[in-house]
């Protein structure tokens, strides 16, 4: 009845299959971590290899031994059959992306992050032609109080990477999630609710992890023209690490 029955017999030879390919893994790795290490792409947004998996966006959903699960949090078992690049799963991922697009206000043509945005690039990867659902058009005022950075909450997908970076790396807790359900939103750590009144700086890890265009460095937005940005050159699946050049 032990719960640790999946300890591998031979640590050198533990593998699972991902869409028919053999992927080695080591103790503690999750499916997406092992896949990434082997150079395989599984679409994802809230996962960032530098951080502990979070499991909220569900874009990295795969089928593992017949059961759907988030590949960023699920640990593989020896000889597990993992399917990722199937029509059914990609259809579901696309629908999840469409949910994220209608939940916020994502106007790519006027977004500084366009071309460097993981949400957009993942939607390209999955051939998302329209947001499909009806838009929620929420009212999310932006915060331009800080001298160097602005926050455009319209684009937030609630991945919490900034919150995780700020607490786990910077030791600051500048960002947190507040509210519940569809009213969940990002807040900053100040009584005024303004970024300028926090101890946030451009040297923070949190300043550089937003996969979309919420945390934006001022005055550099269009230094690289649209059409010449990361994911204009290569699709996200062919970009080894989702570290975006426009962000620094």
């Amino acid at each position: 009845m032990s719960q640790n029955s999946n300890t591998p017999h031979n640590k050198n030879q533990t593998t699972f299959t991902l869409d028919g390919k053999t992927i080695p893994f080591s103790e503690g790795q999750t499916i997406i971590q092992a896949a990434m290490a082997a150079g395989e792409y599984i679409p994802h947004l809230c996962f960032n290899p530098e951080f502990k998996p979070h499991g909220s966006c569900k874009i990295c959903t795969v089928t593992a031994n017949g059961r759907q699960t988030a590949s960023c949090t699920q640990q593989p078992q020896v000889d597990m059959m993992v399917e990722s690049d199937t029509k059914q799963i990609n259809d579901e991922r696309r629908a999840l992306l469409q949910m994220l697009f209608v939940e916020g206000n994502h106007f790519c043509p006027s977004c500084e992050k366009s071309g460097d945005c993981q949400l957009q690039a993942t939607a390209y990867e999955l051939d998302m032609m329209s947001p499909h659902f009806d838009h929620f058009s929420p009212n999310r005022p932006l915060d331009a109080s800080h001298g160097e950075y602005l926050l455009d909450f319209n684009r937030c997908i609630l991945c919490s990477l900034c919150a995780r970076a700020s607490s786990d790396v910077d030791g600051k807790n500048v960002f947190s999630l507040a509210g519940r359900g569809i009213k969940t939103h990002l807040i900053v750590n100040s009584k005024s609710g303004k970024l300028a009144d926090t101890d946030f700086t451009g040297d923070d890890k949190a300043a550089h992890v937003c996969p979309v265009g919420v945390i934006i460095k001022k005055r550099v937005g269009f230094a690289v023209p649209i059409g010449k940005r990361s994911f204009d050159e290569h699709p996200i699946s062919a970009t080894p690490h989702p570290i975006v050049k426009g962000a620094i």
């Binding site: 697009f101 206000n105 994502h106 106007f107 006027s110 329209s130 058009s137 999310r140």
Partner: peptide, 10 residues
């Protein structure tokens, strides 16, 4: 998605 004109929606 409504584009630029829809940025009045809020």
């Amino acid at each position: 998605n409504g584009g630029l004109p829809a940025q009045r929606n809020h």
